[in-house]
């Protein structure tokens, strides 16, 4: 065992290089869409993660806010204070650029966590359904089918509503983000489960699984150690595409006012706030968060599309 880990450690620096030079890396390098969308995603994710360092203001520290700065248009000095803001300010004088960076943090955090939850749930249920079969499979997959008949945003709202009902009022704002993750994650596990079940059905009849059964490996060991690594590539593809969908779902919920609270605004919340000012001429409050959301979702989606093609040549 120590042998293997040591080997992996010494191999670590060259890993990336190996991937870069593999066929996979080659198709990546040769696809402008993949490279472009990957760069956009990286820039957006990095700027969200490093928001406290990049952002010129902290939009949630009331002490730094100056109400006189309210409604400053982009790249124009404020009439009262003379301060200039890259993307303008909102009604309370908050820097839009900074709120976007902080909002993206919330959006991405909710998106990643929700997909992770959906993925773990879907993988476990899908593996069990595919490997064990019988009435357990029927039960899991019928539940999945029933859930699929409802629009996932409706399911998320339902879960959100129920969860909110159980949370004490004073914790509601703190818990909102976690409830959001739970709601989106639970509404999204179905497609993971379906894909994993399908792939498991294929893999479990392969002879390496029979060889493991012959040795006397337990079902759990076969599922986790043998089958799981071989069903991960479609899961990764779905996870990427789901990430885009989860970010949009979060934005939708927040836009509808059932998502992230104004104290922790996500991109969706910012868009909801912004649309109130659209007809009074303060277009920048709505436009910039919307563009950010669009480019984030689009580039993640394009990258996921490319990933699907690269990992499954038959779908091309």
């Amino acid at each position: 065992m120590t042998d293997i880990t040591q080997h992996e450690l010494t191999n670590q620096p060259s890993r990336l290089k190996i991937i870069w030079q593999s066929d996979f890396g080659y198709t990546f390098r040769k696809s402008p869409v993949a490279v472009f969308s990957c760069i956009i995603v990286l820039i957006l994710v990095m700027s969200a993660v490093l928001a406290p360092l990049i952002a010129p203001h902290n939009p949630f520290d009331p002490g730094t806010l100056n109400l006189l700065n309210g409604f400053t248009p982009p790249l124009t000095p404020n009439a009262f204070t003379g301060e200039e803001f890259f993307l303008g300010t909102d009604d309370q004088g908050r820097d839009i650029f900074s709120t976007i960076l902080y909002g993206m943090r919330v959006s991405l955090f909710v998106g990643f966590s929700a997909v992770l939850l959906a993925m773990i749930l879907g993988i476990i249920l899908g593996l069990i359904a595919g490997y064990v079969g019988g009435w357990i499979e029927t039960f899991i997959m019928r539940v999945a089918d029933v859930q699929l008949t409802f629009p996932s945003i409706l399911v998320a709202m339902l879960i959100f509503g129920i969860a909110k009902g159980f949370t004490p009022v004073e914790y509601r704002d703190q818990m909102a983000i976690w409830v959001l993750i739970l709601a989106i994650g639970l509404s999204d596990w179905v497609q993971f489960a379906r894909v994993v079940r399908g792939a498991t059905l294929v893999e479990k009849n392969k002879e390496y699984v029979q060889a493991a059964r012959l040795i006397g490996r337990s079902g759990a060991a076969i599922m986790l150690r043998h089958i799981l690594p071989n069903v991960m590539s479609p899961v990764l593809v779905i996870a990427t595409i789901s990430l885009a969908l989860a970010i949009i779902a979060e934005a939708t919920l927040s836009f509808l006012g059932v998502g992230a609270p104004p104290t922790q605004p996500s991109l969706g919340t910012l868009i909801r706030i912004g649309q109130g000012f659209l007809f009074s001429g303060e277009w920048w409050i709505l436009l910039f968060p919307s563009i950010t959301l669009l480019s984030l979702a689009l580039s993640v989606n394009l990258f996921g599309d490319w990933l699907r093609d690269a990992l499954n040549p038959r779908l091309r």
């Binding site: 293997i4 392969k206 002879e207 390496y208 029979q210 060889a211 493991a212 012959l214 690594p229 071989n230």
Partner: peptide, 17 residues
């Protein structure tokens, strides 16, 4: 008891060393 299978491409787990 052990077994050797027909398809040498399916009988080894591709993700294992």
């Amino acid at each position: 008891i052990q077994m050797i299978f027909q398809d040498p491409f399916a009988s080894l787990n591709p993700r294992w060393r």
